[in-house]
Simulated assay, not measured.
Amino acid sequence: MAQQAPQTDIESARRALDETLMERLRRGLPATSHLKAAIALDLDGGQGWTVSIDGRRMSLAAGVDPGADTTVIADPTTILEVFSGTSSGVEAFLDGRLRVRGNLALSLRLGGLFGNDDAPPRFERALEVRAAGLNTFYLEAGTGPPVVLLHGLGATNASMLPTLWDLSRDHRVIAPDLPGFGESSKPIRSYDAAFYAQWLDAFLDEVGVERASLIGNSMGGRVAIEGALHAPDRVHRLVLFAPSPAFIKKRQFVELVRVLRPEMALLPLRVPHKQVVRSIKRLFAQPGRLADPWYDAAADEFIRIFSTPRGRIAFFSAARQIYLEEPHGETGFWDRLRGLTTPSLFIWGQRDKLVPAGFARHVERALPDATSIVLEDCGHVPQYELPDKAHELARGFLAD
């Protein structure tokens, strides 16, 4: 348990934070700001402020508005450090000093909104580009060899935060929200691997990267594989955390799924918060390894996106494509996988219920030169469940 700061230090930090907010209020927000949102700053006890943003204009009110788009909960010192650029918001979130409820993506923008121009290069920056005609929200941190992080189905770039923070020590790390998810555009279309590979190619152009290593989790791993098959000269290495392959068994519902159109998701579909938390916890071998606030933040973000018609359609379209992908044949995943020439590291979770570690033997047959490792007592999200081991393996492979 963290040691509580003396009351005099808390009051000093509170006054300094108040001065920081007032100074930002006088200066206005960056010219690139187009947000309209309310951000509540809860000083870990119900006291705090609510910041209202409308483009470049900002207003400040005392008190924590329960209807704010996002609520950032931390002690005054932590919030002050994040806003002044002396501490990373991602680091504070990962080590439990800062909690978020509501719009998680909005909280990830706070450093840039409040003017941390002198923050160290390792600290995260929230940016946007237009790639393949689609607005793409992404986080960037660090300098060095470029690495692009690709998240899984129903997730956002926040699911890759431990990897972003670890690798940003000596890499330029770029973590986009895939089209259809998070803050990126959500066109009504088929979200298949070929679409994502073409988008990824355009995204690399927009962020000024000629060649990068790709790290993907679950569906993001499948996107990374397709990216390397589509443009092998642009991909240095692949690190794949429990990538979702084409199903070989349990294909008896293929014809039914073909008939079910994702556009049916236009109809409202309420998902209770507790149910989402339970579903997320099933992805882990030992859910207790993660603090409850992380589950709450992830569930809030999923529900926020899933509550929109386009968010639901994109989710079901991507899930449908994962199930419908042909395993064999000229266009089949497993036959095409044999043509992958990019050096690849596959990391599986021994207790992964979603993508069983048994897929490792199929990968080994298709790619005898690839490295395939099964982590004991690990589920579907090794970057969160066993971050030290997962990132040690990733770092070693990227350095070879």
Rank of each mutant, 00 (worst) to 15 (best):
Q7T: 14
A224K: 07
A155H: 11
L110E: 05
P268N: 05
R361K: 13
L80H: 13
A74R: 06
G329Y: 06
Q350N: 07
T78H: 00
Q252S: 13
Q275C: 00
R278A: 14
L21Q: 08
S59R: 14
D369G: 11
A38E: 08
R222V: 07
L17H: 00
D18I: 00
A360R: 15
P162M: 04
Q275Y: 11
K274I: 10
R310Y: 11
I303L: 10
E124H: 14
E325R: 12
R251N: 12
S344T: 13
D170Y: 07
V90A: 12
P268Y: 01
E11S: 08
P120Y: 08
L60R: 04
N157Q: 15
R270C: 01
S185W: 05
V271P: 00
I313T: 06
D388T: 14
P368K: 01
I225C: 02
R189E: 12
G349K: 04
Q252D: 15
Y295I: 06
P145Y: 10
G85A: 07
G216V: 04
D233R: 15
L324N: 04
A298Q: 11
N103W: 09
Q321K: 11
D205C: 10
L98P: 04
R361S: 13
P179M: 02
V147R: 05
R125D: 03
G55A: 04
P356M: 02
P327T: 03
Q383P: 09
K353F: 06
S372P: 07
A31R: 12
K36S: 14
R304K: 13
A319K: 10
V277L: 07
H230L: 05
R56C: 11
A92Y: 03
K274Q: 15
A399C: 06
